[in-house]
Amino acid sequence: MLNSLDLLIIVFMTLAAGTLLSLSLMFLLRNQTAKRVFFYVTSAIGLYVSAIGLRIGIGGWFPMQIAVGGLTALTCIGAIALDLIGKNKATHARIARLLSAAALVIALINAIL
């Protein structure tokens, strides 16, 4: 039977590997559709990890962690909005990808460390 430590390690490893994989594919693939798909995957993971950070922050009442969690979540939403507004403009898409990647990395650090 898995205990809470096992679950913590599994969730951590899955999130870490998933994050790096979606980030790598988002930047390394050439196919624009695939890039876009991984952008949304990255943004979704970013939102999820931000929510974890927020929950941990609220649970222990760590204002800094709450603020960072909230900011990263907003950044992810902003990146998705920018991509949707920008339609097929390459500059908009590039900025959105960078924002989403930065938010995910910060959210992950905020949630775990």
């Binding site: 809470s4 430590l5 390690i9 951590f12 490893m13 870490a16 590997a17 790096l20 775990i112 460390l113």
Partner: peptide, 18 residues
């Protein structure tokens, strides 16, 4: 390699913290 180092280091830290 980066992922492996990250997982091992942060994983150990998490266990210690836990």
């Amino acid at each position: 390699l980066v992922l492996y180092v990250f997982l091992v280091t942060v994983g150990s830290l998490l266990i210690q913290e836990y």
